[in-house]
Write a protein that binds this DNA or RNA. Structure first.
Length: 434
RNA sequence: GGAGAGAUGGCUGAGUGGUUUAAGGCACACGCCUGGAAAGCGUGCGUAGGUAACACUACCGUGAGUUCAAAUCUCACUCUCUCCGCCA
């Protein structure tokens, strides 16, 4: 959520920054200003009436205390109609307030000034690349072929269980998935200063509103109900990312300044409806309804936000570097950035069998956009209450990393070499057909 | 699923219709005291809106209601805790 004062004071600036996203969000500003104005007018009026009522009520109380009943009754009659006017104006202010908030919650964050202007992914500037595309003396196989020949994933039976878009990892596939999760958690908690947390996989609506997934994108998530109680649908949702519960850990809290910065790291599965997503019906592991991810979250002072974002990207890159992967880092342009982000870096890992780069990490600084929605603040030493910057980044997403790992380290004989750091977690240096 | 208790500022905790302008305590900040500190004493100290600054308004889990006036009374709801039942 943006600061209403910023919208009030610099509406043209806000419109101009929103317009760079190319989604037409700047059109909401007029409605917001209108509702804000109506709210303020109604409040100014009703507050004056309330002041009168409070004053007279106190006089009545004093008169009653002195047993001057006739005078008290006269005062009562005087303020009798005040209540109705107050109620009407209160309702007016409340309605305007609701309208304003409804629009405010649908307004995306302003892109940071350093973000390149652009419309689509084609306009995303390349920041850097690491390593080179591996060369093969044979035609590299796709992960689907490798998973089948090495029996790492049973695509057909996963469909039987849950339909398309779900994966059944088997044998070394299941172990590799687990090894990757554990390796990344250990790396971030022992080398990068993050504290591990394991959050609920179902959260309430407030959490989704807090990070900006609701109300605008409500149709993309899985709601759950206990038993056959359809009326409970909408109370809890499967998390689309660990960001949803973890970023909300301190919602509605007033943190002591000395607690910052807070670094959290969490593994969770992620559940996404992916309604209308192209290619979901096809085989493979690139876009699925459920995948695993190790997520990084930082809650920091505003002045540290962007420096911490650079460090977070480096933390995610370290995973890929240590696994011997070729990847590139790109900076998302204004038109390609997510709803709550002010600045985002994507890390894309090379998948040789696919012959393409796969997004495995997205590192965003949402500035105070989310902390405002959550009413999460910290008190400075000067006694001022401020909204912290909240950052999130994948460190990294699985399934796609799994794919790139297989396709990068495949051998001519159809086996896959396991990078050294993973070997102790997996218990082998090579996965081969039995 | 059953029974009971509860929800008040950063924390704790009083408060059954009008000196509550939410007591007291803790924590915190500043001052006095001290060689320095602790203790003690004094002052300040909730959040948000509003104002040039005051004033003023709202907020005691949420939402309605009664009243001139609600933390306090009524109704509904949510959540938490304890015990019992079921259960990995």
């Amino acid at each position: 959520m943006l600061d209403i004062k910023l919208i009030r004071d610099k509406p043209d600036f806000v419109r101009q920054r929103l317009a760079t996203r190319g989604a037409g969000d700047e059109k909401l500003i007029d409605g917001i200003l209108q509702a804000d104005d109506a709210r303020r007018k109604a409040l100014a009026e009703v507050e004056t009436l309330k002041a009168t009522r409070n004053r007279v009520s106190k006089e009545i109380g004093a008169l009653m205390g002195q047993k001057k009943l006739p005078e008290a009754e006269a005062k009562k009659a005087e303020t009798k109609t005040l209540g109705d006017k107050i109620a009407a104006l209160d309702a007016e202010a409340k309605a305007a307030d609701a309208t304003r908030d409804e629009l405010m919650l649908r307004l995306p964050n302003l892109p940071h000034e350093s973000v390149a202007l652009g419309k689509t992914a084609e306009d995303n500037p390349l920041v850097r690349t690491h390593g080179e595309k591996p060369s093969f003396a044979f035609k590299p196989k796709s992960h689907v072929e490798l998973c089948q020949s090495l029996k790492l994933v049973d695509f057909e039976r996963a469909v039987k269980l849950s339909g398309s878009g779900f994966l059944l990892y088997t044998n070394w596939g299941a172990k590799l998935e687990r090894a990757l999760i554990q390796y990344m958690l250990d790396l971030h908690t022992t080398q990068h200063g993050y504290t591990e947390v394991s959050p609920p996989y179902m959260v309430n609506e407030d959490c989704l509103v807090g990070v900006g997934q609701f109300p605008k994108f409500k149709d993309q998530y899985y709601g759950v109900a206990e038993g056959d109680k359809v009326e409970e649908l909408g109370k809890l949702y499967l998390i689309p990312t660990a960001e949803t519960p973890v970023a909300n850990i301190h919602r509605e809290e007033l943190l002591a300044e000395k607690l910052l910065p807070i670094f959290y790291c969490a593994y969770t599965p992620c559940f996404r409806g992916e309604a209308g997503a192209a290619g979901l019906g096809t085989r493979g592991m690139i876009r699925v309804h459920q995948f695993d991810k190790v997520e990084l979250i930082k809650i920091v002072k505003p002045e540290d936000g962007y420096a911490e974002q650079e460090k977070m990207v480096a933390n995610a890159e370290r995973v890929l570097q240590s696994l011997g992967m070729h990847y590139r880092v790109i900076s998302l342009c204004t038109g390609d950035m997510g709803f709550g982000s002010a600045k985002t870096y994507d890390i894309e890992v090379w998948a040789a069998g696919q012959g393409s780069y796969l997004e495995v990490s997205s590192v965003s600084n949402c500035e105070d956009f989310q902390s405002r929605r959550m009413n999460m603040r910290f008190k400075t030493e000067a006694g001022e209450n401020k909204f912290p910057h909240i950052l999130n980044g994948s460190g990294t997403a699985l399934a796609r990393l799994f794919v790139a790992l297989l396709e990068t380290h495949q051998q001519a004989d159809g086996s896959v070499l396991i990078p050294e750091p993973l070997q102790k977690y997996l218990g082998t240096s090579r996965i081969a057909t039995a």
